[in-house]
Simulated scan of single mutants.
Amino acid sequence: MASLWLPFFLVLIAPPPMRPSSLPWQDTTEGKATIAGQILSALERAAFFLEERLPEINLDGMVGARVLEEHLRSVQEEWAQDTLLQPLGMRVGTLAAKLEALIQQSLFYLRQSDPEYLREFQPTLQPGFWKLPHAWSLTNASLVYPTFEAQDSFSEESSDTCLVQLLGTGTHSSQPCEPSDACASLMTKPGCSGYCLSHQLLFFLWARMKGCTKGPFRQSQHHIRVFCANMMDLNRRAEAIGYVYPTRDIFMENIMFCGMGGFSDFYKLRWLEAILSWQKKQKGCFGEPDAEDEESSKAIQYQRHLLRRVKRREKQFTDGCSSHNTATAVAALGGFLYILAEYPPASRQQHPSTLPPPRR
């Protein structure tokens, strides 16, 4: 699956202090509806972008749409039972139906542009593949690695090979849930950061979704806890350096994957606010920000340099829109909607900046 290189200086920055969000707290149904409405508006704009660029959107971009669609279906069911949230629930249902149609239409273009990649990863576009969490926990800071490996050790090709082995979609009639020893070693190697770390988590999330329980998968939950503790640490470091553009995609991917892993502390209101602010409102996409100052320009040039170094299927449009950025953004935003739907409104004296685990 597509990946970028995370700037190594990210791991050298101390995490920032917590700060309040300007978004309203959702301790009432009305407050929940306000936040949900903002998220839905962003997602509807993103859906129009996907529709307009559908022939050019790669498979990873459509995977983000599928993850979002799974979240929306669950939210729709939950809100159908609440009179005040039913209008939003109707919008959710309309958007989910639109995404389903786009995913099916995209298969025609993907068969033309990258048939082998589609064959290997098509299961991830199927309805029901992505399983949503129904139990929640918080990350454990004591599991954060004391040091990180250099990101240059990560190979997207090796990661894809291991994911294909897990899915059992290789050309040599391989069986699901039977990775090689080399893949088991790669996907449990400590000290990874950036996309190496998120692909390790993805490997074990897919194993859970496929029902894999043998070999390295006997300790799946332990590995997921370790990976998400470190992804939380990296997200806080990304926040500390102002979410510079090269960190935004992995920042959102971490929320997408660890949210699906059941870690509710990735759903911080201030992080939601940041993601919403990155959308190109007119186009509906997420991607390269406008270079308004010298530092932004330097960050963008650095990102382009890294993209030249890495073989990837990322689709970067000339107007700055990114297929992968948009995919991670909509999937992460879908997770925020999902936890809002699961979280019961309740009055409280303090307004924390993280949504606590919902009752389930």
Rank of each mutant, 00 (worst) to 15 (best):
M1A: 12
F9Y: 13
L10Y: 05
I13N: 14
P16H: 05
M18C: 08
S22E: 13
S22I: 07
L23T: 04
Q26L: 11
T29S: 13
G31V: 09
A33K: 06
Q38K: 14
Q38L: 12
L40R: 00
E44W: 00
F49H: 04
E51W: 00
E52F: 01
R53P: 01
L54V: 05
L68W: 01
R73S: 04
Q76R: 12
E78M: 08
A80D: 04
L84K: 11
L85F: 05
Q86E: 12
Q86V: 09
L88D: 03
V92P: 00
L99A: 06
L99G: 02
E100Y: 03
I103M: 06
Q104S: 13
Q104I: 08
Q105C: 07
Y109H: 14
S113M: 07
Y117T: 14
E120M: 12
Q122M: 13
A135H: 15
W136F: 15
L138D: 09
A141P: 13
T147F: 13
F148S: 01
Q151C: 10
S155F: 09
S155K: 06
E156W: 08
E156K: 11
S158M: 11
S158F: 11
L163C: 03
L163H: 10
L163F: 03
G170V: 09
G170N: 07
T171R: 12
H172D: 14
H172N: 15
Q175G: 00
P176W: 07
P176T: 07
D181P: 05
T188P: 00
G191N: 06
S193Y: 02
G194F: 01
S198P: 05
S198K: 02
S198F: 00
H199R: 13
Q200L: 10
F203Y: 13
G211F: 09
G211I: 14
C212K: 05
C212R: 04
T213L: 12
V226C: 04
V226S: 02
N230R: 06
D233T: 05
L234R: 04
I241A: 02
Y243C: 07
V244P: 02
Y245E: 06
I250V: 12
I250W: 12
N254M: 11
M256Q: 10
C258T: 04
M260L: 11
G262Q: 06
Y267G: 03
W271C: 02
I275C: 04
L276C: 02
L276R: 01
S277A: 13
W278T: 00
S296F: 04
S296N: 10
Q301Y: 10
Q301E: 15
Y302P: 00
Y302V: 03
H305N: 13
H305S: 13
R313E: 11
T318H: 11
G320F: 09
C321R: 06
A327F: 03
F336P: 00
E342C: 05
T354H: 10
P357K: 05
